[in-house]
């Protein structure tokens, strides 16, 4: 748990950015979506540590995605950083507001309330013409500091942007886990009473975690919307939320790195399954999830963790 792991992580992102031009387009495009979604999963990892599993995290994902989409549709703003900032701010705000409700609940009630809130958004999106109704709408390509890259460069630049967002988020979240507030998530899961009697407001702590997770999901949604150049209400549907929880379990929710490795692995699995079993790839995914839970309760990350775990007890 030394800062060494942060350095390794940052180097890995740099390496990914450096080799990207040499990689086939399908892989870069897959990794772009995978890492955009990894930000949502990173948020779920934060909540998982506190013992919370939202079945409606797609709410913030969709808020982020729709913010970008609406900006390109109804305003002249095309600058990618302005779009991302707007998406982060809006999803963070929604996370803050819904947090007043959600922070009071735990376990299945938390999961269900989160699901209900996301389905409310789905209900609104599906029925509102100005928001594109069931079809959603197209998202224009953004500009990067005034430049609008074309052709193969467009994907590459976007991939670099996603990597930049991911490395910054990973760094900040790692630092957060090293702070007292970040480290208290696990104690909060174990005994809220003890924390309260140490002078900590568990609800405020959880509220903070909810806002962080919502903001990350919003940025992830915004990047995903830019990557696929389209938004639709399915981004807020429960199956999208379920997919994110799926990846969290698959990765093992143990660390920051798990979110990124897990998400990449998931997209790869999905594309392999899609090639091998077109039409019935979900059978493959379901089987993988089932086997992971049955035989690797700590997720894929635990394969590596187990070797490292027994620290010398001096």
């Amino acid at each position: 748990m030394a800062p060494r792991s942060i350095v390794i992580g940052m180097l890995a992102f740099l390496l990914a950015a450096a080799v990207a031009p040499a990689l086939p387009t399908w892989l870069v495009s897959l990794a772009t979506v995978a890492f955009a979604n990894a930000l949502v999963v990173l948020g779920l990892v934060i909540l998982w540590r506190a013992g919370l599993v939202p079945f409606g995290q797609a709410l913030y994902y969709a808020v982020g995605a729709y913010s970008v989409a609406l900006i390109t549709r109804y305003s002249g703003v095309r600058d990618v950083l302005a779009m991302l900032a707007a998406a982060a701010a809006l999803s963070g705000l929604v996370g803050y507001l819904t947090g007043f409700l959600l922070a009071r609940y735990r376990e299945i009630f938390f999961s269900m309330l989160s699901l209900a809130l996301s389905m409310i958004l789905y209900g609104v999106l599906v029925k509102t013409e100005t928001l594109g109704s069931t079809d959603g709408f197209h998202v224009d390509s953004p500009t990067y500091f005034g430049a609008a890259p074309q052709g193969g460069m467009r994907l590459l630049v976007l991939f670099w942007l996603v990597l930049a967002c991911c490395s910054l988020s990973a760094l900040l979240v790692s630092l957060y886990f090293r702070s007292v507030a970040g480290a208290l998530a696990i104690p909060a899961r174990d005994s809220e009473i003890r924390l309260e009697f140490l002078g900590v407001s568990v609800n405020r702590l959880i509220h903070l975690n909810l806002v962080i997770a919502a903001t990350l999901a919003g940025i992830g949604g915004a990047l995903a919307a830019i990557a696929v150049e389209h938004v639709d209400p399915d981004m807020s549907y429960w199956t999208t939320s379920g997919g994110f929880v799926f990846v969290t379990i698959l990765a093992g929710a143990g660390s920051v790195a798990a979110a990124f490795v897990g998400s990449l692995l998931f997209e790869l699995l999905k594309s392999i399954a899609y090639d091998v079993l077109p039409g019935t790839w979900q059978i493959f995914l379901g089987a993988v999830l089932l086997l992971t839970i049955l035989f690797l309760p700590g997720g894929i990350g635990s394969l590596f963790m187990r070797r490292r775990r027994p620290e010398p007890a001096s």
């Binding site: 299945i108 039409g279 019935t280 979900q282 379901g286 089987a287 999830l289 089932l290 839970i293």
Partner: peptide, 20 residues
């Protein structure tokens, strides 16, 4: 409890495609 929910989610994924 939540892990068991996910197990049923996995079963759901499998059953959904098995319909096809």
């Amino acid at each position: 409890e939540v892990v068991v929910v996910l197990v049923t989610y996995a079963v759901f994924l499998i059953l959904e495609d098995a319909i096809k």
